[in-house]
Amino acid sequence: MGFKLLSKLLVYLTASIMAIASPLAFSVDSSGEYPTVSEIPVGEVRLYQIADGVWSHIATQSFDGAVYPSNGLIVRDGDELLLIDTAWGAKNTAALLAEIEKQIGLPVTRAVSTHFHDDRVGGVDVLRAAGVATYASPSTRRLAEVEGNEIPTHSLEGLSSSGDAVRFGPVELFYPGAAHSTDNLIVYVPSASVLYGGCAIYELSRTSAGNVADADLAEWPTSIERIQQHYPEAQFVIPGHGLPGGLDLLKHTTNVVKAHTNRSVVE
């Protein structure tokens, strides 16, 4: 069995187990497998329904001669939608809004960016022009300005110390501490036991640490421990890039980060 097929099978099995364990909360999309990078042309966006009122959005972007996937989250909030992270750029984010209108038909009224990198804030200006209120932590807003990236308009308070959590509509926002970046936030959907790890969490097929220019490698494993301790009931975990899975993604990420750190020390 090929690795790609095995990865998709694991996603399907995880979703099936969740649907059985929580039949009222989960209505997993039966329309197909989780979209992969090879299936999404740059400039297009796919939506994948995880649970009743919960979707991931998947886009792709060219970077350094390669094409990478990027995940975000959409959560229903009454007759409105909360968006977590842009679709990595203005063109993708405009396509995301169009796809949401086509498939869901509810307005996106608020959006949260989970850290300051372009795959999370690139497209904020498109959201703002569409009347979406954009939010991020003060740290993310400051770092985005320093980096020359787009800056969300509103500040999220109460997320300055490791372990801080605040309720934001249908989700809980959690600051686990520094990891992929010093400002990275985690998003949890309690009604569906869905954990969105953003770039602080890796997919299972990833074996290298990737972009760690703004990471705190020493603190990252401790931050992941905080996530595990705060959300032990999480059933569906979405990484910032690639295929979702279960809580095993947290341990896998820790292993990859520690291996990278150990290699760096040896070198």
Rank of each mutant, 00 (worst) to 15 (best):
E233K: 14
M1Q: 06
S62A: 10
V166Q: 11
D52Q: 09
A200K: 01
V67K: 15
G197V: 04
A165Q: 13
E157Y: 10
R76Q: 11
F168E: 02
E150S: 04
H180N: 02
Y196R: 02
I58Q: 06
V42D: 15
S62T: 07
Y12K: 15
P69A: 13
E99Y: 09
T253E: 01
E225G: 12
V237T: 04
E80Y: 06
A87L: 03
P138E: 09
Q103E: 14
I40W: 14
A129F: 08
V124D: 02
V187P: 04
G131W: 06
G53D: 14
D119G: 04
H180S: 00
P176L: 04
V265D: 13
E147I: 14
A144S: 11
R167G: 11
E225P: 03
E157N: 14
Q61K: 13
V121M: 04
G131I: 07
K8C: 15
S162R: 14
H260S: 13
G177N: 03
N262S: 13
M1F: 07
T261C: 07
G158P: 05
R142D: 13
D214M: 03
A129S: 11
H115S: 00
S137N: 08
L10T: 15
R263Q: 15
G65Y: 06
L13A: 14
A213M: 14
T140F: 04
F26D: 14
H252W: 03
L97V: 00
L97M: 08
L173E: 01
I40Y: 07
D77S: 08
S22D: 13
R128C: 07
D52L: 10
V212M: 08
N149F: 15
V146L: 13
S161M: 14
K258N: 13
E44N: 13
A215L: 03
A95W: 05
T222V: 11
L81G: 02
S223T: 12
A215H: 04
T14K: 08
L173Y: 01
I238S: 03
T140C: 05
E267V: 05
S193F: 13
N211M: 08
S191L: 08
T93F: 00
I201W: 02
Y68T: 06
A259H: 10
P170W: 02
P23E: 09
Y12C: 11
T153C: 06
E225K: 12
Y34K: 11
L127K: 03
Q49I: 09
S22H: 08
L249P: 01
I227Y: 00
G246I: 04
V75P: 03
D164P: 06
L243H: 15
L217H: 01
T93S: 02
I58F: 10
Q61V: 07
I20E: 15
N92A: 06
L9I: 15
G43I: 04
L250D: 03
L195H: 05
C199K: 00
Q61N: 07
R128P: 06
H230I: 10
A129G: 11
L83D: 02
T93N: 00
A95F: 15
G72C: 03
E80D: 08
H57C: 04
L249E: 02
A192P: 06
Y68M: 04
A136M: 04
T93M: 00
V42I: 06
E233G: 11
M18V: 15
F168K: 02
H230G: 09
S162I: 09
I20N: 14
R142K: 14
T134A: 04
H260A: 14
N255M: 12
R76N: 05
E33V: 09
S70N: 03
D79P: 09
D85C: 00
V28G: 10
K258Y: 10
G43P: 05
D52H: 09
T36H: 12
T153Q: 13
P190T: 08
V194H: 00
S56E: 15
H115G: 00
K8I: 10
P239R: 02
E157T: 12
A130K: 12
K8L: 07
I17F: 10
K102L: 11
T207N: 14
E203R: 01
A192R: 11
V11E: 07
I74F: 05
G163E: 08
I50W: 07
T254N: 11
E99C: 06
V67M: 15
V126F: 11
L47E: 02
L81C: 03
